[in-house]
Write a protein that binds this DNA or RNA. Sequence first.
DNA 1: ATTAAATGTCAAGTATATATTACATAAAGA
DNA 2: TCTTTATGTAATATATACTTGACATTTAAT
Lengths: 70, 70
Amino acid sequence: MKNIKLKVARVEHDISQEELAKRVGVTRQTVGMIEAGKFNPSLQLCVAICKALGKTLNDLFWEENDNEKN
Amino acid sequence: MKNIKLKVARVEHDISQEELAKRVGVTRQTVGMIEAGKFNPSLQLCVAICKALGKTLNDLFWEENDNEKN
DNA sequence: ATTAAATGTCAAGTATATATTACATAAAGA
DNA sequence: TCTTTATGTAATATATACTTGACATTTAAT
């Protein structure tokens, strides 16, 4: 499932996937895949992304309604 | 870094590491290592643990670690 | 004192997150 | 047009999360 909240937070900061990737120490492909919902990042990476974007885990990675299927 | 909040939440539910592990679909070793802070779980596993314990990601896995003065 | 449940840990294996490299497309600007 | 920037995707490689199985120690109850 795509992570729209992450993409919105990144666009609010007006940075590219590549720039975010550099700031958190991964490749742009990794950031792209996370936004695309194509895999399951580690907690540390989620936390690094949150801090880079001034958000919390709940802001970007917590789904109140859990009907997750993929 | 040990995850005390996770351990406390589990103990509040009065379940063992093994029981929590069973409920979230991993082994007790994995739960033990996460509580001991010896590795970096996946987001999906963190979410599963939170739901099993009635907590959120911020409750169990977010550190408000900006050094605050008072 | 003895038993059983809970936990710590270790070695070796498997699954998968993430890297690397590369190619492709679309949008924006000059 | 031509160039640059941003993004999607794929194949292969590597690092590490997680499993399996075992053994030891602690903790709680009898």
